[in-house]
Design a protein around this nucleic acid. Structure first.
Lengths: 167, 167
DNA sequence: GCGAGATATTTTCCAAGTAAATTAGATGTT
DNA sequence: AACATCTAATTTACTTGGAAAATATCTCGC
């Protein structure tokens, strides 16, 4: 059984047999897996009336346990400041996130989950994890953990390297 | 040395020790790797005045070798028809893609690369692959191929499973 | 040959993201 | 204290993408 990316690589081999397509076999699959997983997870969140970026905001606030400033939240969710402003505005309107202006420095605001926000993320995260577990069920746990380890290794080098090559 | 996702998982373990975060260790890393790789590749394409989706259109036309209709191109690039229409309009204006109306069925149009379009993608793809190879250079070839294989396996199950669970 | 539907593409309208400008407040230097 | 400079957050202007409607054309059954 062949995956889509294998087909793409085969096509390229036909028209550009001179190229080493090894990187594409890894990165193409990585991107495609990521897209499919995101699609499934978006569908689940959609049923709950949340977008993925909104979920990410709630999740970040939940896992740090306390308050976050918008700029820290932007860093945690890998989003721009402007995007955070807009997402938080929506979540605040929906009563899921609360805003508190800092006492000493009135430029900074502290964001936190409301009771309802915490309940929502505490209900959604397990659902999300269950879906993900179901999607990964094809891999036995040992293969899964080895995949996680391999990706972790790659991620460390990327985080290091991208400082040098782009960011 | 720890990656970002490991940190996130550790935070979750702190506040929700009841959950099995195994799936997150895989999928979080997958998504993050994908995002970082895309960022690097976008930067490279940006220097050449192309966006990633535009690159994907040229690449699809090049690897199939001949013409594609917009709907087939949408399937090949995993994009909506509307998105394809807009991308093709830009690429046509730039003289990289040509449009030919079908003789028998005047609803369908056939898209192909112009001479310039083919030259561009033939120059860019090797650059792209070289960048990707550099980014993956941390993994020795054997580990890299095993990662590709593991991802391929996952991708096959996802493609099958997502028919059932969502799409 | 003529509707009734099916299909390919494009258009319209709207949601969401970014970069750059803006606002507002803090900090440091003289 | 006054000025320039830095920083946090937001706003603005613009771009891109998608869903659904619109357009144009084909096909089938009569």
């Amino acid at each position: 059984m062949e995956d889509v990316v294998a087909g793409v690589v085969r096509q390229w081999q036909g028209v550009r047999p001179d190229l080493d397509l090894g990187p594409m076999a890894v990165i193409g699959r990585l991107n495609r897996c990521s897209a499919l997983l995101r699609q499934a997870s978006d569908a689940l969140l959609g049923e709950e009336g949340l977008t993925r970026p909104e979920f990410d905001v709630l999740a970040a606030l939940r896992r740090v346990g306390g308050e976050l400033t918008p700029s820290r939240l932007a860093r945690e969710t890998f989003a721009s400041g402007a995007a955070v402003t807009k997402r938080v505005r929506v979540l605040e309107r929906e009563g899921l996130v609360a805003r508190r202006v800092d006492g000493r420095d009135r430029r900074v605001v502290h964001l936190s989950l409301t009771e309802r926000g915490r309940e929502l993320i505490d209900r959604l995260l397990p659902e999300q994890l269950a879906l993900e577990a179901a999607l990964l069920a094809g891999l036995d746990p040992e293969r899964r953990d080895r995949l996680a380890a391999a990706l972790g290794e790659l991620l460390v080098t990327l985080e290091g390297r991208l400082g040098g090559l782009v960011g």
